[in-house]
Amino acid sequence: MTLIFRIAALTSVVISALIVFTLVRGAIEFLRLVPLSGLIDDAKTPGWFPRRNRFDLPTVVLGTLIMSSIAMVVAVPLGLGTAIFLAEYASSRTRRIIKPIIEVLAGMPSVVVGYFALKFIAPELVANLFQPDKIQNMTAAGIGIGILIVPIMASISEDSLSAVPGALREASYGVGARKSATVIRVVLPAAVSGIVAAFIIAVSRAIGETMVATMAGGLDGSGARTSSPLDPGLSITAALTNAAGGSDQALVGAPVKVLFFLGLLLFVVTMGLNLIADKFVRRVRQKY
């Protein structure tokens, strides 16, 4: 029996090993076709054009950074605000009503949010607010990603706020502090590790979020390098799905092999972020 259980547990290690092996092997094969120097397009208008063998890494990195940053601008105030409200201000009755609603948002399939970004956020919200040249742009996609990560930001922050012992709040009230002073000067500083962890995990999710970026980013797998959030743009994930989407044949050629390289890049970045977040989470556990 023990052997069966141990094999089951080892499966997870095998999966990790296979992921790393697959990504590294594919990335090496890609780099054989396209040398590292080819990853910065030196054309007059540089960009990501896989079918023409132009793989400009700054294009997709910029796209990812812009969309994730917009997502965080949306998710941090909404998520953290909701967390503070629920943990410190809401009555237990209000909490019982709001928490399940946030959980609905947490369970929202990303493809549905992608549809929402495509059909509402882009044409009605962003188009009216910012008058972009193109209806589909990175701002719309970023807001969509932000909506998806609000629940993560909210739930992890709320957990760390709730983990702050009530005795600290009482101590603060005991010397005549108001609720707002107690929240800002005692509770938030005590919960800061958990909130930082929430932030990092949210960033990691934003970078890895695929459907919204693919559907609402405004490009079909190729586009010029841009740093304007109101331009259409390509994230690493969107470039990845598009590289695979065109692959009806066997896995050959740089335009397809690039997906392993992008996958490896994504894997390294998100795993690094998750490990850092883990450190912060553990710091919370040690303290209380």
Partner: peptide
């Protein structure tokens, strides 16, 4: 509470 202070059962210094 500014005029009437309190000391609690378990020592609860702020971190």
């Amino acid at each position: 509470r500014r005029r009437i202070g309190m000391v609690f059962q378990k020592p609860n210094p702020f971190p």
